[in-house]
Design a protein around this nucleic acid. Structure first.
Lengths: 142, 142
DNA sequence: GTAGGGGTTGACGTGGGCGTCAAGGCAAGG
DNA sequence: CCTTGCCTTGACGCCCACGTCAACCCCTAC
């Protein structure tokens, strides 16, 4: 099959396939016209790449998986080098999720504080006689 | 104070300050020599920007906070526009953390599966007589 | 003949937030 | 006078995974 068909079958673009070839990740044979030619095994490799890309793997990180498949192993992650990438990615994900969660909590706290400040000001505006509602002296303003 | 001092006091670089000015975020007065001049309030604005940047806010997203401070409000998040950004960021963070967590679980599952497959093959290699260890027929191979 | 639908290479654009270099000015100190 | 140090503007580099455009070739159908 040619580049357009492979791209369509993998749900990607010809530009992407040419890019992968330029990076040495998915080389192609050529027919008499100089057109790139692919077979079903290339589709398999491409799908492996795309899956990992969707997971957020860098292109270079997919290389061990592709080479593993090309070496004849049943799965892209049948090789130690791929497992190393998996483990490193897991550590990266854990670190990132941890950071993002911490930021999320901080931002949530800031938002809550800012909303409280805003509501306090609004309450002050409604009750002109009492800018300091709590802790005046006693409790019986009325 | 001049640009170098402000950068140092905010823990950033002169390049960054010029970039902010080019983006209209932190304009500077000029002295007789054409040198940028800042005061303490600019440091305040800059610190607001840097804090939000550290949280992962886009530069444009810091603008409402900066304008809020410049308008004389006590905090950068004393204005509704800033609260909108907070809420949007929270939603983005939640979505992102959710996606990353899902990916993390998927990758962890793939890793576990791949390791099991590897261990099974290793076991097969150690026991040449039994490539199918479980569910042979009965249970008493010995 | 020509229009259309494939393909080819090469090269520049994108986004974000700067880093880095080039070429020059201006003031203080030895 | 010269160096040092700070400043100025302008412009290109970076990273990554492509998108997009240009100019051209090839085959088929009408």
């Amino acid at each position: 099959m040619r580049i357009g068909e492979l791209a369509a079958r993998a749900g990607t673009t010809t530009r992407t396939l040419r890019y992968y070839e330029a990076r040495g990740l998915l080389p192609a044979r050529r027919d008499g016209n100089g057109h790139r030619t692919y077979d079903e095994s290339d589709l398999r490799l491409l799908r492996q790449i795309r899956t990992l890309q969707d997971f957020g793997f860098d292109l270079e990180e997919t290389r061990p998986f592709v080479e593993c498949l090309r070496a004849g192993h049943p799965e892209g992650d049948s090789c130690p080098a791929a497992l190393v990438v998996y483990r490193r990615k897991l550590a990266e994900l854990d670190a990132l999720i941890g950071q993002l969660t911490a930021v999320r909590e901080t931002v949530a706290g800031q938002l809550a504080r800012a909303e409280r400040a805003r509501d306090d000001l609004a309450a002050d505006a409604l009750v002109p006689g009492g800018p300091e509602p709590a802790c005046e002296l006693g409790g019986l303003t009325r």
